[in-house]
Design a protein around this nucleic acid. Structure first.
Length: 428
RNA sequence: GCCGAGGUAGCAAAGUCCGGCCUAACGCGCCGGCCUUGAGAGCCGGUUCUCCAUCUGGGGAGCGAGAGUUCAAAUCUCUCCCUCGGCGCCA
């Protein structure tokens, strides 16, 4: 959420920024918002004046009571009685305008950092760096879908029976690898100064709203029937919501949380995309990083988060590229976003494994997460950042594909070997 | 799920029975000023959000959330949420 005062004071600046996203809707929204805000302020003024008058009369009545001025009191009360209904009427109207104002304010995206490349869609993303060597295979590499089937590492057919499409039973060595990955993640997260968390996977509506997942992405999340509870699409929601309504101390920054949770996504709008295997599913486990910083240090922290993800993937020896996500592809919450895309030999393309975002004060303003230097000093909205470390099932697909050997076996990455009692996956 | 106790500002804590000098006390912390060689103590002012004016200022809202009663609600009524304790149920 943007600061309404900033919008009032610099409408052109906001407009210019929104134009970069090349969506007419945002411009219309902004126009509507400014209109509603103006109307709201007019109404507020009227209401406040009426209240002021009422308060004045109330005080007079009180004084008269002490002096026993019965006749005067009657007159004043008759006069005062007329005011509340006027206030009520205006207030109802004002509330309507206010909710319309909020409707727009909640949907207007964050301001983009100046280094975000301009672009219409995915095609506009800029590769800034590559790490490692693209692996070469003397044979035709199999897809993770085939590998999983061959080695009996997941059962997707039976999952369809119990749950429908985009579900899976993870099996055998893949289960062990998942736990190995979690342990390996924890090690790196601790070393990098993250406090570990396993957050709730059901959160209230206002937490989803605070994180920017609602109202815009309502179709992408599951909701519990008849309750104000949502299944999280990422632990980012509860981890950022963790500090809702708090005033933090600047000396504690950066606050870093490493969260592990199951994530649930409807994948609405992804029909036909990655339908096979465990690459894109309704349900997966993810290790996520969250940082809360002051307003000055978030860009440094942004790099730190991405660097942490890089260290993790480097430790697994996965060849990847770092991508600066463009204005048309970035989403509403982030001010800037880097993706880490790894090489998938069966597809001969890079696929997203990690997404690192600096949300600046967009989430913090919604969630009222503030900080101050010391008690008594003025408060400021924090900056919040998030990054994937690994979405485990997707990470597994990447590992399987990249570690397959010509003889059909799958090697286990060195760093994970100490957590499992096998060094490779072979046919039995 | 049942019973009980609570929810007041950065923290802590009165006020709630009995509506109105509540401008939400007193205190702690913090910020600014005075004083001081310096610090402390002491004294004065400030320390939520919001609207208008922005040099001094003037309103309004805010006591878990919402609705109601009233000229007037932290205070009375209703609904809901949350926290803590006890019992029950249960992985």
């Amino acid at each position: 959420m943007l600061d309404i005062k900033m919008i009032r004071d610099n409408p052109e600046l906001i407009l210019n920024n929104l134009e970069k996203r090349r969506k007419k809707d945002y411009i219309i929204m902004l126009k509507n918002l400014i209109e509603k805000d103006k109307k709201w302020r007019e109404l507020k003024k009227q209401i406040d004046e009426l209240r002021s008058k009422r308060n004045e009369l109330t005080k007079k009545i009180q004084l008269l009571k002490q002096k026993n001025g019965h006749e005067e009191i009657k007159k004043k009360i008759i006069e005062a009685k007329k005011i509340p209904e006027k206030i009520k009427e205006l207030e109802e109207f004002c509330k309507k305008i206010e909710s319309e104002k909020k409707f727009h304010l909640l949907r207007i995206p964050n301001l983009l950092h100046e280094t975000v490349p301009f672009g219409k869609d995915k095609e506009g993303n800029i590769v800034i760096q590559k790490w490692g060597k693209k692996p070469e295979f003397d044979f035709i590499p199999k897809s993770h879908v085939d590998l999983v089937k061959t080695y009996n590492l997941a059962d997707i057919e039976r999952a369809a029976k119990t749950s429908g499409t985009r579900f899976y039973f993870l099996k055998n060595q893949l289960v062990e690898l998942e736990f190995a990955i979690i342990l390996h993640s924890i090690k790196i997260l601790k070393k990098r100064g993250f406090k570990l968390m396993i957050p709730p996977t059901l959160v209230r509506g206002f937490i989803m709203e605070g994180g920017g997942f609602l109202p815009t992405f309502r179709d992408d999340v599951y909701k519990i029937e008849d309750e104000d509870l949502y299944l999280v699409g990422t632990s980012e929601a509860p981890l950022v919501g963790f500090h809702k309504d708090e005033i933090l101390y600047e000396k504690d920054f950066p606050i870093r949380y490493g969260g592990f949770s199951t994530c649930f996504r409807t994948e609405a709008g992804a029909h036909g995309k990655d339908t096979k295997g465990i690459f894109r599913t309704h349900h997966f486990e993810k290790v996520e990083m969250i940082s809360i910083t002051n307003t000055n240090d978030s860009w440094e922290e942004f790099d730190y988060l991405f660097e942490t993800a890089e260290l993790f993937w480097q430790s697994l020896g996965i060849h990847y590229q770092k991508v600066n996500i463009c204005t048309g592809d970035i989403g509403i919450v982030a001010s800037k976003k880097y993706d880490l895309e790894a090489w998938y030999p069966s597809q001969s393309q890079y696929r997203e494994l990690v997404s690192t975002s600096n949300c600046t004060d967009y989430q913090a303003r919604r969630l009222k997460i503030r900080y101050r230097e010391k008690d008594g000093m003025p408060t400021n909205f924090c900056h919040s950042l998030n990054s994937t470390l690994i979405a485990i099932q997707r990470g597994l697909t990447c590992i399987l594909e990249n570690y397959q050997k010509e003889d059909g076996s799958i090697e286990i990455p060195k760093v994970l070997q100490k957590y499992v009692d096998f060094k490779e996956i072979v046919l039995k």
